[in-house]
Every structure is written in structure tokens, then in C-alpha cells.
Design a protein around this nucleic acid. Structure first.
Lengths: 219, 219
DNA sequence: TATTTATTCAAGAAATCTATTGAATAATTG
DNA sequence: CAATTATTCAATAGATTTCTTGAATAAATA
């Protein structure tokens, strides 16, 4: 094989892989599948796009070996092809968060409206756990909590949070988390809790980032 | 800001960032700029494409804040905007190498033709250095060696290698390296050296990967 | 076996991306 | 100051991507 053909092949393949990621809906799908497998309909619902369109995006991701599918009865269940897909997406995402002014601005604006800009990193949370000085709350839907969560976290799905505000445990700071840095459940929870005067911040990252670092999880 | 608008903005921005990477020439440019800054003409030469086309690709990369430029006299010197760009590209690249059958096949075919498939990882090289059991040869152009190289490496640019074959040092295995896993200088060097019966393998990675791990370098 | 259901496929219009060409710009040199 | 040089810009044609619509498929159920 020629030197030139080699380079052309390699970089074309890698560009194809990258192109398969380079669409807002497909990135959102990857982020969603980081929580666990989902059917086409569930994904379409979450993204608010048509089933046919969702299916086509999934074909693109499958064609690039970014997701895998297994069929069970009526349903096609899609999942990420490997942890490396997640790691690679996180790399891109963090580059965007740290270097793109527009993304930083959007994050900041959204969170400031919800009094949620002051977030806690995984490392800070680990410190607080060691000092037994924190109440960790998982505000994802119960199904996701049951599929795996930070050890010691309590499950209060965001749509049940209002019922628990009255008798909130005192003394420790509350840290809420959900699916990742772009998951808004945690910001909404911070908004509700801090309006009640409860000391609370969100975890900057989410469960997938915790899990991929092999930190303690429960099922 | 609405939840929906927030997600749409964030993922669109990230998709734009990813799209800026998703072209074979632009990935090659990123890989090249990992060696240091380059003028438009140098980049065009390396990629064998027109200057105008190169310039346009550079505008796309600049628009996504992936590269930065400074002008000096006639020349525009482009460089990577940050180490995070490199890390992000490495993430994608490694996903491709490890998970895409077509890339693996191309690498394997190219290297087997050059008796260069058996490569050494950075970790293995570190072991060999500790045992003082290795001759490290940098086969990149001299200019790149002078801009930074693995400590203890000897510079023999690939086009001068033939002159040094006769009196090659005996006793230690030779490890050659160049710009990264897709750089072919190292494979060509392995081919030339092993045809002379000299024990040699290539470093799987290249100088940028060594440097980004903060391993010892010299200038 | 006919019907229902979840998903995929196919075709087409609109938008975007790419490489080429030649002109425009802006710094340096004669 | 005119000429040269490196780079960018603008316009364009061809290729690719995207979303929509409606039909096709294939597994489960009546």
C-alpha cells in the first residue's frame, strides 16, 4: 500500500467516525445512552423528534460502530458500543466546555437563572463524603437510579422533589446529581431547594462520569 | 432560558465543534500541528492539496477555536489552540484504532508490508530505558527534532538513514519513533533496518503522545 | 391467518460542505 | 512607490447531509 493511500484511508475512516458524532441529536443520543439502553421510541421522546428521524440517526451511529442494538420482541434496544465511546465523547465535550466561549456562556446563563452556578466537582464530593458531611440526592427518574447510582445516594426523582421539601434533613449540605453536566434536573432541584433556604449545590458531572472513574456505585 | 433551548444550543455548539474536526484533511492538519506551528504553505505541501483549500480548512478550524494563528512578515503561522485539542483528537483517534475494524485492517496491512507490525508502547519503552537496554532514534526531520524530542534520542532523519546503516551500534535493540501512530517514517525505518538484520521495532505512539504525558524531553 | 405494533427503508427537497478558480488583500522587497 | 509574495476571500458546481412523508418489514397478538 502506498504511503499516500494509507494516509488517505486512515484519516478518511477517522473523519467518518467523527462525522457520525457531529450532529446535535446524535450527541444527545450518546449522552442519553450513557445512562443505559433505550428503545427507539424512548429516544425519540427524549429528543422530541420523529421516530423515523431517530431511527436514521441511530443507523448512522450504528454504521460507525458507536452504538449496538439488540432486539427483543417488538423493541430494538440501543446501547453504547463501548466505554471508549463515552470517553471519547467526554473528551470532546470537555474541550467544548473549557474552550468554547459560547458554550460557557450558555451554561452560565442557564444556571444563573436557577441559582445553580456554583457546582461541586467529583473530587470535592469525594472529600465531603470522607468527612461524612454531605447528603447525596439522585434526581434522575427512578428507573435510572435502579440501574446504578452513586453509593449512599438517596433517590428523589425531580418530579417528586416538591413533596419532600417540608422535612428535609438538616445539618449537612445537599449535593444533587443527575445525568451529566448538561442534565437540567439537578439545576431545577437546586433552584427548588435553595428557594427553601436549604444549602445545596449540584455535582458538575453526573453518574456516567462517576461510574467511568470506577468510583463506588450501588445497584 | 427554556430547558429545550438550552439543550438545543449546547448540543448544537458541540456538534459544530465536532463537525470542524470531521474532515480527513482537517484531522491531518491537527496531527501535523501537534508537532509545532506551521505556515499555510507547509501544511498544503504536507497534505498535497492547494493553498486555497488549505486556507479554507484552516479557517474552519480557527472558527471552532481549534487552532490559533500569528502572523509574522509574509507568513501566517498556525498552531493548535491548546493541549486539550490534542487530547480530544487522541481520544477520537484511539477509539478509531481500537474499535473500527477498517482502521485496524489498514494499519495492519501497511505495517505488515514493512515488517513493522510488532510495535512497542510508551510504557514498554520506559521499561527498556530503565534497563538501559535501548537505542532510541528519532526519524523525523531535523527541524522537528530540534523543536523537542525524547530525552536521550538520537536524530537520524529518515532520508539520511541509509548513510548510517553500515556502522549501526550493536548490542541494544533499536526503537524508532516519529510523529504518532499514523506517521510512516518509523515504519520505513523499521523496514530498512530489519532488512540489514538490525533488531528494531517502532514506538506505537509518537513524540506528541510522549510530551503530553509529561515524560522527559529535551530541546 | 389477519391485525397490530415498533422499526426501518426509500424518495425527494432544502440546506450544508467541498474543491476549484481567479480576484483581493496586506506585508515585504527592489 | 511598484512589484512580489503568502494568504484570504468570493463565486460556483457537485457532493453530502438532513428532515419529512409514506410505504415496507418483521415480530407479537387476536
Amino acid at each position: 500500500m502506498e504511503k499516500h493511500e494509507f494516509k488517505s484511508r486512515i484519516y478518511s475512516e477517522l473523519a467518518a467516525l467523527t462525522k457520525a458524532m457531529s450532529n446535535p441529536f446524535r450527541l444527545q443520543i450518546i449522552d442519553l445512552l450513557a445512562q443505559g439502553s433505550r428503545t427507539v421510541e424512548e429516544i425519540a421522546d427524549q429528543l422530541s423528534i420523529s421516530i423515523a428521524n431517530t431511527s436514521q440517526h441511530l443507523q448512522v451511529l450504528k454504521g460507525a460502530s458507536l452504538v449496538a442494538v439488540y432486539k427483543q420482541g417488538h423493541y430494538a434496544h440501543y446501547r453504547l458500543a463501548s466505554d471508549e465511546v463515552l470517553a471519547s465523547w467526554h473528551g470532546l465535550r470537555d474541550l467544548g466546555i473549557n474552550r468554547m466561549a459560547e458554550i460557557d456562556r450558555t451554561l452560565r446563563e442557564f444556571r444563573e437563572e436557577r441559582e445553580s452556578f456554583d457546582s461541586v466537582s467529583i473530587n470535592e464530593l469525594l472529600d465531603k463524603i470522607q468527612q461524612d458531611n454531605v447528603l447525596i440526592v439522585d434526581v434522575r427518574p427512578e428507573k435510572e437510579f435502579n440501574a446504578g447510582h452513586i453509593s449512599g445516594a438517596r433517590s428523589i426523582p425531580i418530579d417528586q422533589l416538591a413533596q419532600h421539601l417540608a422535612d428535609w434533613p438538616q445539618g449537612k449540605e445537599t449535593i444533587v446529581y443527575c445525568r451529566g453536566p448538561f442534565c437540567v434536573f439537578a439545576d431545577e432541584a437546586v433552584q427548588m431547594l435553595s428557594q427553601k433556604g436549604i444549602p445545596v449545590r449540584r455535582l458538575e458531572e453526573g453518574f456516567p462520569e462517576w461510574k467511568i472513574r470506577h468510583l463506588p456505585i450501588s445497584i
